[in-house]
Lab assay of single mutants.
Amino acid sequence: GLTEEQKQEIREAFDLFDTDGSGTIDAKELKVAMRALGFEPKKEEIKKMISEIDKDGSGTIDFEEFLTMMTA
């Protein structure tokens, strides 16, 4: 499992990506986040990433899903 410290770091990354503070990361926010990390993702790639992570089919990534992605 994760230490509380690791969870906190992932939470901070999540909050950075969640620019509108909605508690979820949408495609637009993910794209901005990827760019910040030096990637140039295409729209299809973003969609694919979200569909792989987005277990509940909401079209957005919540913290639990993000946590799973970061620790996979």
Rank of each mutant, 00 (worst) to 15 (best):
D54F: 12
R35A: 14
M34Q: 01
E64R: 07
D20I: 03
S58I: 04
F17K: 01
E52D: 10
A27C: 13
G38F: 02
T71N: 04
L2M: 07
D15G: 05
T60D: 04
I53Q: 04
L67T: 02
K43Q: 15
T19F: 12
A33V: 14
M69L: 12
E40I: 11
E44W: 10
L16G: 05
L37I: 04
R35P: 03
E64V: 06
K55E: 05
K43N: 15
G21R: 10
M34L: 11
R11G: 02
D18S: 03
E44R: 04
E65L: 12
F39H: 06
I46L: 11
I25P: 00
E4C: 13
A33M: 13
I61G: 00
K28P: 03
I53E: 02
D26M: 12
E52T: 08
K7F: 12
E29Y: 14
E12Y: 12
K48C: 14
F14Q: 00
K43F: 13
D15P: 01
T24L: 07
V32A: 15
E4V: 09
F17W: 06
G1Q: 08
A36I: 12
M70F: 11
T68L: 14
Q8R: 09
T3Q: 04
F14I: 01
I50Q: 03
A72V: 08
F63Y: 05
D15F: 06
A13T: 10
E4G: 06
E9N: 13
F39Y: 10
A36C: 15
K42D: 13
T19V: 08
A72D: 07
E29L: 13
I10V: 06
L67A: 03
F63D: 00
L16K: 13
K48D: 08
R35I: 13
A27S: 09
I25W: 04
E4W: 10
K47M: 13
F14Y: 02
I61K: 00
F66Q: 00
L2G: 03
T3F: 03
F63W: 09
A13V: 14
Q6M: 05
E4N: 12
L16R: 11
K42N: 14
K55Q: 09
K28T: 08
D62K: 13
E65G: 14
Q6E: 06
I10N: 01
G38W: 02
A33R: 02
E45S: 08
K31I: 15
S58T: 10
T24F: 08
E29D: 14
D56N: 13
A27M: 15
L2Q: 03
E44G: 10
G59I: 08
K55F: 06
E44P: 05
D54G: 13
S58Q: 09
K31D: 15
E29K: 05
A13H: 05
G23L: 02
G38D: 03
M69E: 01
D18G: 03
S51H: 08
D56Q: 10
D56W: 10
E64T: 08
I46D: 04
D56P: 04
K43L: 14
D15A: 10
I53S: 05
P41V: 15
K43M: 14
A27I: 15
I10Y: 10
F39W: 14
R11T: 01
F39I: 07
D56F: 09
I61Y: 04
L30K: 00
T71F: 10
E40W: 13
E5C: 14
K28F: 07
T71K: 07
L16F: 09
E45K: 04
K31V: 15
G57A: 06
E52Q: 12
K55M: 09
L16P: 00
T24P: 01
L16V: 05
L37A: 07
A27L: 14
E29S: 10
L37Y: 04
T71P: 03
G21M: 05
L16T: 08
A72I: 07
I25Y: 01
K47H: 07
R11Q: 05
E52R: 10
A36R: 06
I61H: 00
K42L: 12
E5W: 09
K28D: 08
S22M: 03
K47A: 11
P41N: 05
A36M: 11
G57T: 05
V32Y: 15
F39S: 02
G1T: 13
M69F: 13
E12P: 02
E5G: 09
E4F: 08
E12W: 14
K31E: 15
E29T: 13
E44L: 03
E52M: 14
A13E: 02
I25Q: 00
T3R: 06
D20A: 05
E64P: 04
S51V: 05
G57M: 08
S58N: 09
D18Y: 03
L30Y: 01
G1F: 12
L16Y: 10
T60R: 14
L16N: 06
E12V: 10
E9F: 12
Q8A: 11
D18N: 04
M69A: 05
L67K: 02
E65W: 12
E44F: 06
Q8L: 12
M49T: 02
I53D: 03
M34R: 00
K42T: 15
G38Q: 03
A72R: 11
S22A: 04
Q6K: 13
F66I: 02
T68M: 12
K31M: 15
K43T: 15
K47Y: 05
L37P: 04
E12K: 13
F17H: 04
T68N: 09
F66Y: 02
E4K: 13
F63Q: 00
F17A: 15
K42S: 15
E44V: 04
I53P: 02
E29G: 13
G23C: 09
K55A: 08
R35M: 14
Q6P: 01
D62S: 15
M69D: 00
A33W: 07
G38L: 02
T3I: 04
L37K: 01
L67N: 01
G38P: 01
L2A: 03
G57P: 05
S22R: 08
K28A: 09
F17C: 12
T24N: 03
M70V: 15
Q8P: 03
E52C: 15
L2S: 02
M49P: 02
F14S: 00
M69G: 01
K55R: 09
E65A: 14
F66R: 01
T71E: 14
D15R: 12
K43A: 14
T24S: 08
D62W: 03
E29N: 12
E9S: 13
E52S: 13
V32D: 15
K28I: 06
E29Q: 14
T24E: 06
L16C: 13
S51F: 09
F66D: 00
M34H: 00
T71G: 07
D54K: 12
G59N: 06
A27F: 14
A72T: 05
D20Y: 05
K55H: 09
T3G: 07
F17Q: 03
D54S: 12
L37H: 03
L67Q: 01
G21L: 03
P41C: 15
G1C: 14
T19H: 11
D62H: 09
D26T: 13
K28R: 09
G38S: 02
L16E: 04
D54W: 08
F63M: 03
L30F: 06
G57V: 05
M70I: 11
E45N: 06
G23Q: 05
G57S: 05
A36S: 05
D62Y: 07
S58E: 06
F39D: 02
L2N: 03
T71R: 03
L2H: 05
A36N: 07
G1S: 10
V32R: 15
E12A: 15
Q6V: 07
D20P: 01
G21C: 13
K47W: 14
R35N: 13
E9H: 09
D56C: 14
E29V: 14
K43H: 12
D62F: 14
S22T: 08
I53N: 07
I46T: 04
S22F: 02
G59K: 07
K55P: 07
E45R: 04
P41H: 09
